[in-house]
Design a protein around this nucleic acid. Sequence first.
DNA 1: GTACAATATATCAGGAGTTATATAGGTAAT
DNA 2: ATTACCTATATAACTCCTGATATATTGTAC
Lengths: 170, 170
Amino acid sequence: MTGYDLKQHFDHSIYYFWNAKLSQIYPTLNQMREGGWLTMEVDYQEDRPNRKVYHITEAGRGELHRWLQEPVDMAPVRDAFLIKIFFGGKLEKEEILAQIRRYLMLHQEQLAAYQEIVQQAVQQNVEATGMVREGVFWGLTLEMGIRYEQGWIEWCEEAIEKIEAMDDDQ
Amino acid sequence: MTGYDLKQHFDHSIYYFWNAKLSQIYPTLNQMREGGWLTMEVDYQEDRPNRKVYHITEAGRGELHRWLQEPVDMAPVRDAFLIKIFFGGKLEKEEILAQIRRYLMLHQEQLAAYQEIVQQAVQQNVEATGMVREGVFWGLTLEMGIRYEQGWIEWCEEAIEKIEAMDDDQ
DNA sequence: GTACAATATATCAGGAGTTATATAGGTAAT
DNA sequence: ATTACCTATATAACTCCTGATATATTGTAC
């Protein structure tokens, strides 16, 4: 694939848990080629920029397998929204409620997007071919996404109730 | 506070959703002072390095309030573990199970740590003083942490079951 | 038929954050 | 007494990632 092709795949599969911009992908492909994990061939084109097509090498496959097995630490959470909640006492009740209602809406939209993907997948893949090995893992990542969004939605709803129930002079 | 003091507060309160190293805190304090959000006074000490004590200015308080009200986008998820799941088809069943079991354990430990904080808080604060306004918001962030860890734990348990139930030749 | 968006290819400057390094006294354990 | 860790202060080098910019063609809307 070319860097551009890769970006398309990023955006249509792992986008929701790992994204990258083209300005990161291009130099990274170069580094991986220098490291021997990829080869590059130029597909010369008239009338438009040449395509730099990358192929994985045996060393690249080996490194991928090694990396997949390597233990991972928990991904650190880094969420500015939670800082705003933490300092919620510095805002008026309505100001903090506005923040939470907005965040609730964003996560509802995200959940709907995931559920849309599930529906499409059920129609296109599962009915026809059954869930093959690769599909199971793809489905697991999507389930985590749904669970994550549902968690946020429930938290937001409970938080709104609690804050609404607060004495105004508290 | 000094940069060092701030680091202690980071580590003992918002650590689980926003962390910073001293090497980020010190230059940031400088930038904030240059921007007029902080003042700095030197507390001269003999026999050990002087303490640079920072105080928030009125402009700083204003900026904090402005920032707290400013809408936030959803924090992007960036979790290498989910990439490993996504490419789980490239690993042996036992290899991928080992990954998930390890991640389950990490999140169980994290949940236990949060629940420990809750217990301490119940004993120290709530019984004595009742949950005052600030404490409500602090509690909400902790609840989100607990919900998040529980979500991961449930997902891991279900994922392990599903993968164990897979045909080996699938 | 013309303007605008999308496709397709990148590079460069800079910000945010981490790791490594430096220094030096105080405290607790063995 | 010595080791090891904790308090306390930073700076420098580097990595990762984003945002801005450049270029040229193809498809679409008005």
